[in-house]
């Protein structure tokens, strides 16, 4: 009995790493994704092609591989840069990889959302004497947010589960923790991890539904 509660508390503790990675990835990848999306729509061709190439490479290779390249790459290439030692370094490297990866996916969603706003909306703002910045914030932004909410929600839910991939560079996240038990012959903790993800995603789903309802007062 005592052992069960110890296991549960260790699983919960390791799930905190998944949660931290999740939160940090969102906080940084959403704004970075917006910047990248502006770049991929830029009229300056070299910038546009550079960013589109990066997005292609990031979306075209497994996140697991990216984690390894970012964590081991600097050492293997004898770069002067190295990650901090120990758990911190592994976590920071994982965060960097996740932010880059998700920013690229988000940037494509943002680009689609921004490009789907009818030209007439910009023109209506222009002939009413609005500045470009005013048009973006007062006219198009909310329409874009409404349009992209479902695909962004999808990505966010995927991110919850993807955080487990960080174990490939030895981050002690929940599945890695459970794996230590299963390798000793105790299998239920591994299945138990599913409950953590289900509860987390369930809460997120409620939040996303609420947001969608919040924006149901207008149609685009």
């Amino acid at each position: 009995m005592n052992e069960i509660s110890v296991i549960i508390s260790r699983l919960s503790e390791s799930f905190l790493l998944n949660c931290r990675l999740f939160a940090l990835t969102l906080v940084f990848s959403l704004p970075l994704g917006l910047l990248i999306s502006f770049g991929t729509m830029s009229r300056f061709r070299p910038l546009r092609w550079l960013l589109r190439t990066i997005v292609w490479m990031v979306r075209g290779t497994p996140l697991m591989l990216q984690l390894m390249i970012i964590f081991y790459g600097p050492g293997l290439l004898n770069m002067s840069f190295t990650w901090p030692s120990g758990a911190t370094g592994r976590f920071v490297a994982a965060t960097v990889a996740f932010v880059i990866n998700y920013a690229c996916y988000f940037s494509e969603i943002f680009r689609g959302g921004i490009e789907s706003v009818p030209k007439g909306q910009y023109e209506a703002g222009q002939v009413l004497g609005m500045t470009k910045v005013q048009i973006f914030f007062k006219v198009t932004l909310l329409q874009v947010v409404k349009r992209i909410l479902p695909p962004v929600g999808n990505e966010v839910i995927t991110l919850v589960k993807d955080t487990s991939l960080s174990r490939i560079i030895a981050n002690k996240e929940i599945i890695m923790m459970a794996g230590e038990y299963s390798s000793k012959g105790l299998i239920w903790p591994l299945f138990g991890t599913g409950i953590y993800f289900l509860v987390f995603v369930g809460a997120l789903t409620l939040l996303l539904d609420w947001l969608e309802k919040k924006m149901g007062y207008f149609r685009v």
Binding site: G120, E123, V127, Q143, F218, V220
Partner: peptide
């Protein structure tokens, strides 16, 4: 631009307002 006003064929009202 403000010398002129323009009414569009397809209205272009702002849907969120």
């Amino acid at each position: 631009r403000l010398h002129f006003g323009l009414v569009f064929q397809d209205f272009n009202l702002f849907p969120q307002y």
